[in-house]
Design a protein around this nucleic acid. Structure first.
Lengths: 344, 344
DNA sequence: CTGAAAGCGCTAACAA
DNA sequence: TTGTTAGCGCTTTCAG
């Protein structure tokens, strides 16, 4: 017990002077170097424990050019997918002794670029990123790579870079979702997409279109809308869609929040789900089964995606020579609920 | 443009040698020191920009014993309150030029203690924490303070420490919630509490009890249950409660997830909400109004709480002399929806 | 097996 | 106004 208001920091120097050893011997003893006798190791470790010695991470980072820290950049956080992914990332990172810095790009690619600049100075050993909606060029990401920093993409990936990506089976899931609506009797199916630049946006739209085409259904061009992520704007876009004369009878949305907005609007203007409109969405909503009506979802393995992304990144950090970028796909599952039921 | 696969790091030394200045002059010029001529400042800044110089944060941290980084420790992340709070924290931190490390204690106080040890070695300049459910002693938190590290509590606070706390009006909100149920005609009101140690848990239970007493309602001791945070266990506890002969007609829960479990159980065993059971809960659920039935909530200003906590912490970091700990309360609002409606 | 010494990149007191 | 120097705490090479 120490009776001081602020405890002095205990560092190698202090341990060394108490033990009457040199700093380097203490350092080596703590890292279990073969050069040090067992007896000395024990003495050193005992005292370190007693004084609760914690090495200064910045001194060590500076010296070894390794920070044991990774950055996670997500476009938003009010989205259950990203929250679960962060959970998975955090889990894997902790397991491997890494620290996790969080950054939110707020779907703004300029901000994303700014963030990236903050990361290339050694603060982190690698970057996990899910791109913002409006990102279309990848120069800033190349900058990271050029600094020798590994980067792993998850969900919203870039295909213009040679690096690891972790995604779900976007094309197939979109295809399946659309097919699901068709099988439930929908003829006029609309799609709320994420944006035009992202590869997942493109894949999900392609899957949607192909499912329509394969089933000889016409695509009404007004039924393919691109949402923005801004509540007010998306609300208007979707309301517009649902108020149109030739209203859709099925809706597939690429993001949870679009489906929720659709729910709100349906409630307001008395469109019955699923009788008048069937809805399916990509979503990791915990309350999907408690909504009125319960919501049919394509659910991504968010935790697993985050975990896999972090593990890949750490592998790339620790074994840069042997590391070969991979494109990993972890499948989503369709969970059928009442929003697409046929009875009504 | 550089045609190398890995760009050499540009540091002060490099800038200095190119400009034929000393390292310290370059350093001062970049930090806009009054000692340096404008002409030199311009030259230096121009080159720094061109070469995209980013100072090494660890060298600077090591030297100044400041990392411009704060830690956030939350008990869980699958909870909209904490997600929104993190959003607020992130926002304030970015505004002030701070980085945010995230740690999840998973409601485990041993893990929490472990985390705390990681934080006292200079990695962060301060700690934001919301305690895990089972934390009952605060020795590990004192360790942080003894190192001279400021700590700010939010939501799940400790009252045994002299430090800033940001909470909502827990007692009043619990009182109001209970009163709300009473006014809607409930006679047999149950309560799912968070735990026994946390001060917010105690306050919420007190508010509940006082509201009952003030309205001459008996408290059935079986109706005061303490949930664990573990889904399986909580499910059984709540199911038990709702299956009991003398079933409650009102339920007040301190955490969103308890109310959602209750919803699931009601659906399963055909208890009608609100006819048979009225439910109100603390919650920041985005879908509260879309549930069947829509859920009456006490909604905490989560973003603001996070923001305020971060700003307080940064103030404590930057002006330690003048900083006086405060106990800040930001009020919650009761949003009445169908789960407590009287018509039925 | 242990120790001396250099240096990671930066800051700041002091000198010039 | 600019430069020299010491040193933050740690790791690592090399010498003893």
């Amino acid at each position: 017990m120490y009776n001081v208001s602020i405890m002095a920091t205990v560092n190698l120097k202090k341990l060394a002077s108490i033990l009457e050893l040199s700093i380097s011997t203490v350092s080596k003893a703590l890292r279990d170097s073969y050069e040090i006798s067992n007896q000395t190791k024990e003495r050193v470790k005992k005292l370190a424990q007693e004084l609760n010695y914690q090495p200064n991470p910045y001194a060590s980072s500076l010296r070894r050019s390794k920070s044991k820290t990774i950055a996670v950049v997500v476009p938003e956080i009010a989205n259950n997918f990203f929250v679960s992914a962060i959970n998975g990332i955090q889990n894997a990172a902790h397991l491997k002794g890494y620290h996790v810095l969080i950054y939110i790009s707020h779907e703004n690619s300029n901000y994303e670029k700014e963030l990236v600049n903050i990361l290339i100075n050694g603060r982190v050993d690698g970057v996990l990123i899910s791109l913002s909606r409006d990102t279309d060029d990848v120069e800033h990401l190349k900058t990271i790579q050029n600094k020798g920093l590994p980067i792993v993409f998850f969900d919203r990936v870039s295909e213009d870079l040679d690096s690891t990506t972790i995604t779900t089976d976007d094309y197939e899931s979109a295809y399946k979702s659309t097919l699901h609506l068709i099988e439930k009797g929908c003829k006029k199916i609309a799609n709320c997409a994420i944006g035009n630049n992202l590869s997942i946006a493109k894949k999900r739209v392609e899957g949607f279109k192909d499912a329509l085409a394969d089933n000889k259904l016409q695509l009404n061009s007004n039924f393919l809308i691109t949402c923005t992520g801004d509540y007010e704007i998306d609300y208007k876009l979707i309301k517009n869609l649902l108020l149109s004369k030739d209203r859709p009878d099925g809706l597939f949305t690429s993001i949870e929040s679009f489906a929720l907005i659709a729910y709100e609007i349906c409630k307001e203007i008395n469109i019955r789900i699923p009788q008048d409109l069937k809805i399916i969405t990509f979503s990791n909503l915990r309350t999907a089964n408690l909504l009125a009506p319960s919501l049919t979802t394509i659910t991504q393995p968010a935790f697993e995606i985050g975990e896999a992304a972090a593990l890949q990144l750490i592998k790339a950090i620790e074994k840069p020579k042997n590391y070969v970028p991979e494109n990993i796909i972890i499948k989503s599952g369709l969970i059928e609920r009442d929003s697409t039921s046929v009875a009504g």
